[in-house]
Design a protein around this nucleic acid. Sequence first.
DNA 1: CGCGACGTTGATTTGCCTCAACGATTGTGG
DNA 2: CCACAATCGTTGAGGCAAATCAACGTCGCG
Lengths: 192, 192
Amino acid sequence: MYESIDKNVNRSVTFSQEELDIFHSLLEHRSVPKKTFLLQEGEVCNFEAYVIKGCVRTYYIDENGFEVILQFGIEDWWLGDAASFNEQTPTKLFIETIEDSELFIFTPHSKEELLFRVPKFERVFRLLIQRNLAATQSRLFHTFSKPAQERYLEFIEKYPTIPQRVPQHYIASYLGISPEFLSKIRGKLAKK
Amino acid sequence: MYESIDKNVNRSVTFSQEELDIFHSLLEHRSVPKKTFLLQEGEVCNFEAYVIKGCVRTYYIDENGFEVILQFGIEDWWLGDAASFNEQTPTKLFIETIEDSELFIFTPHSKEELLFRVPKFERVFRLLIQRNLAATQSRLFHTFSKPAQERYLEFIEKYPTIPQRVPQHYIASYLGISPEFLSKIRGKLAKK
DNA sequence: CGCGACGTTGATTTGCCTCAACGATTGTGG
DNA sequence: CCACAATCGTTGAGGCAAATCAACGTCGCG
């Protein structure tokens, strides 16, 4: 049960069995059916979650009333709203399961206790944010530099399982294009 | 000399005079003339810098050979390439002064020593990355949701001093539009 | 002075959006 | 278990935001 998450945190820092035991004792396991909101706009985010199994999306609603998808969370991903979680401010995000999912949950309290008892985890969490930042920057610049078709091809290469698991218009939203246009891109690619 | 940076780090965490003294002793002050590269593609970023005075830009070159501006650094801003700095990997970024500038510099070594001697700084640095992430996400979604004219108006409102200090086509690059189109937007706005 | 970097302006093109209509699939209540 | 609605993807027509290309004026600087 802890295999995947242990491997995840061990990537950047090495922990002893004792430290991992503390880690495990502070994790809360949660099973969530699909189409369930883990977080809604206006709430304070009181969790950071690791996805053991399943599929989740994070999005917000822009001023024109459109959903914009921030990220998908599948196996071995972390999700949450770091700003809301850490500063206990209301979130603008929605986090919703797309499939039945299994998660490990940190609360502000359990995370604090983990950091207190095993300070090396500071580094793990900092690296998580840092990678997230690097990925977001890269996504921003691809949006500037590359046409939608190329971004789509890169998306399915990078996340090959997601297209089979989520509605196509979610992917369009993630790419920043309209569902119709994504459909046309796919049509054009198919007939080659 | 330390006023501004003290205020900057004190925003999120409160430090004693003793802790600030340690902080100051580890800062390296550096004056840099304009049009100087602090970092170039392929190098490993061995600094994180706080801008006391001056103006700096961070950019990279995309696969079509175009410069894309990631951020401007002016007074009271931090800059560097966190990923390259922390993991000692080669950077893809260029960091170049636009004006004569004064900086405080951390090296990996001095930062590590600071964190060792005053662990509370962990929080300062984590918050820096976190705010950067929030700002980058917000920029990405504005790029999806808002036309260029609106993004330009928000830019000059948010950073009123920058348009007077940098060539206009840098701003176009930051906004993700062509220099000609920014010029047309400005023309249209002017005649109202 | 003359060159290079910069900004402007206009003509043309294009990537992507909007709107509308239409099948196919899913799911839900009666 | 069916019927109907809702959700989803596709396709086409038309329109707009922004890119591209080219020409030109201006300024700062060697």
